[in-house]
């Protein structure tokens, strides 16, 4: 948090300020003021025990349960499976779910509306609220990666760029979906229900917990168009150069295989951005 200047302006400065805009000090840079607002939000996160448990312990426990559940392994290997699981769990349970509840709680407490009364832009208000959650998400991924290395299960991704793109695009999508979901979420408690389509359905059918090829064809066809699936696809392709079916493919065609999930992901980002713009409210419904 940046320290506030401690001196009062002199009478002369005061007069200048009332007459022209040009003499106003330029103030903190955008990153600095975002840091100030996000810092307050981070304090709030740390002081909220439920949020700490949900965002720090839960995802790690879930990831730790992955080998016990006998998921993955085999062709793909334990390391990439754990990392993919960490990405899906962090994006869905942490980024998405935590942001829906946080935005809705701040809206219903009239905090968002008050944050809009200052110099922060609307985008900065939304970003400041999201930053701590995004940092915890990234932290989770770092912890799991370190764990995988410690277990001796680390293998370098075949195509690192796809992994990075999958994670970043997934983050963007989850933030947008969270903002969109606040439109039909009245209270922080009701978020437990309104987030189920993503938290339960889309993540279950993402190909992370079981291969989509084990599903009836019509269902796996639908599953490929759900929002979390393309993230898993891109991670599989990036880590091990295998398709969602687990079939190895040549390095040359990895990019060709990536076109479809990347397209689905971009389409979802566009849809989520439109829904976010339409559905988001700054204040509770009167």
């Amino acid at each position: 948090m940046s320290a506030a200047p401690t001196t009062r302006p002199t009478t002369q400065e005061r007069t200048d300020m009332t007459t022209t805009t040009a003499t106003r000090p330029t103030g903190p840079s955008r990153p600095a003021r975002l840091r100030a607002a996000a810092g307050a939000e981070a304090r709030l996160l740390v002081r909220n025990r439920t949020a700490v448990f949900n965002s720090v312990l839960m995802p790690l426990l879930l990831v730790a349960a992955v080998p016990a559940l006998g998921i993955g392994g085999g062709e793909v290997g334990l390391g990439p499976t754990l990392l993919t699981a960490a990405v899906v769990i962090s994006l869905v349970y942490l980024t998405y779910y935590n942001l829906v509840t946080t935005y809705v709680a701040r809206r219903e407490d009239l905090v968002l509306q008050r944050m809009r009364t200052g110099e922060l832009s609307d985008g900065e208000v939304l970003a400041a609220t999201a930053v701590p959650t995004l940092l915890v998400t990234v932290g989770q991924l770092v912890v799991v990666t370190a764990g995988v290395v410690a277990l001796g299960e680390w293998s370098a991704p075949v195509q690192p760029l796809l992994v990075v793109v999958g994670v970043l695009a997934g983050l963007v999508l989850m933030v947008l979906l969270a903002i969109a979901s606040t439109g039909f979420t009245r209270t922080a408690e009701s978020a437990q229900i309104t987030t189920l389509p993503i938290v339960l359905v889309s993540s279950a059918l993402s190909g992370m917990f079981f291969p989509l090829s084990t599903l009836p064809e019509w269902l796996s066809g639908i599953a490929r168009f759900l929002p979390v699936t393309p993230v898993v696809d891109l991670l599989h392709l990036g880590f091990s150069g295998t398709t969602w079916e687990g079939e190895p493919i040549g390095d040359v065609s990895v990019w060709t295989w990536a076109v479809f999930p990347a397209g689905v992901l971009v389409a979802w980002i566009v849809v989520a951005a439109v829904l976010a713009r339409r559905g988001f409210r700054w204040a509770p419904r009167r």
Partner: peptide, 13 residues
């Protein structure tokens, strides 16, 4: 203090 950090010319907190 955190609100002051978002302002151009904050008073002393």
């Amino acid at each position: 203090r955190s609100w002051a950090g978002t302002l151009s010319a904050p008073r002393d907190a």
